[in-house]
């Protein structure tokens, strides 16, 4: 049994919260650069250039890329041969978020109750998804999620008879309804199958996959490409002000489902698609 002190997890999460809000991953940066080349609308190109400049300023002057530094969504894959010591794992994760958001000058965007709505003042608690896996390591993935795009996300409980066309319609409906609100160019995470909540978690997790990597399942990879083209032909464009680049990638995850169901979750992310992972 390998022992890991939870304080190590606190430290990792603190540092990841800060760095992920100042620097996008390389795949996202390249996708945005490529979008600038591909965009034919003058205004669209102008907006993409400004976004590129925004990334440079964020990184060089330590100003968050977006003022909405998100609610911290954390995926933990915990090896079953790990023994966590030194206190509660959940408390350690939230302590990392607290330290990161306070010391990193990140915005505190979390309220303590969905209806009473008092700000918690330190961006805790995080949304934590734990999974027990083989091995003796802990993989931490942090994906702070802004709510401009989160608010435009949807779940569709389709009938099996609606099939792949139903899935395409669902994704396109969500994207068209989101329009300028979701700060396009977007990244679209889709979860197909499982049940109600499994589809939503898969959609969120799909957003943490590199935008230059397609699904390993061939028909899913083709569906990703087709949906990206269809979304880009809507003309919503950068900033929702018209153009060719409405989405940078569609990432789809799938899971077995019930004979009676076809859940489809569409989790939309803006162009500030932040995610970072590390292994302890």
């Amino acid at each position: 049994m390998r022992e890991i002190n939870v304080s190590e997890i606190t430290n990792k999460i603190k540092n990841m919260c800060i760095s992920v809000n100042l620097d996008l991953s390389d795949d996202m940066k390249s996708a945005l650069k490529q979008a600038e080349q591909e965009e034919s609308s003058t205004l669209g190109k102008h907006i993409l250039r400004q976004l590129d400049k925004n990334l440079e300023i964020a990184s060089s002057e330590s100003i968050p890329i977006c003022q909405d530094t998100g609610m911290a969504v954390i995926f933990l894959e915990i090896g079953q041969d790990v023994h966590l010591t030194g206190g509660s794992l959940e408390a350690a994760v939230n302590e990392g978020v607290r330290q990161g958001y306070v010391e990193g000058y990140l915005r505190k965007s979390v309220v303590d109750d969905p209806l009473i709505r008092k700000n918690t003042g330190d961006n805790t608690p995080a949304v934590i998804h734990e999974k027990i896996v083989d091995g003796d390591k802990v993989k931490i993935t942090l994906a702070p999620k802004g709510f401009g795009s989160e608010n435009m996300s949807r779940i569709f409980m389709l009938k099996p008879a609606e099939g792949i066309e139903g899935v395409k319609n669902a994704v396109l409906t969500a994207v068209k309804d989101a329009g300028p609100n979701a700060c396009p160019p977007m990244v679209v995470g889709v979860g197909i199958g499982g049940d109600f909540e499994k589809s939503a978690i898969m959609a969120k997790q799909a957003l943490t996959r590199r935008v230059d990597k397609h699904s390993d399942i061939q028909y899913v990879a083709e569906l990703e490409k087709e949906l990206k083209d269809k979304i880009n032909s809507t003309g919503i464009g950068p900033g929702g002000l018209g153009g060719d680049v409405t989405c940078l990638a569609v990432n789809i995850n799938t899971y077995p489902t019930h004979i009676a169901g076809l859940p489809v979750a569409v989790n939309i992310c803006c162009h500030v698609n932040r995610h970072i992972s590390c292994i302890v």
């Binding site: 907006i47 976004l51 925004n54 100003i63 968050p64 977006c66 401009g148 300028p180």
Partner: peptide, 13 residues
């Protein structure tokens, strides 16, 4: 008016 969404560092200048 709209400002560019997600360009908070640039706009802060």
């Amino acid at each position: 008016f709209a400002a560019i969404g997600g360009a908070g560092a640039l706009l802060s200048k």
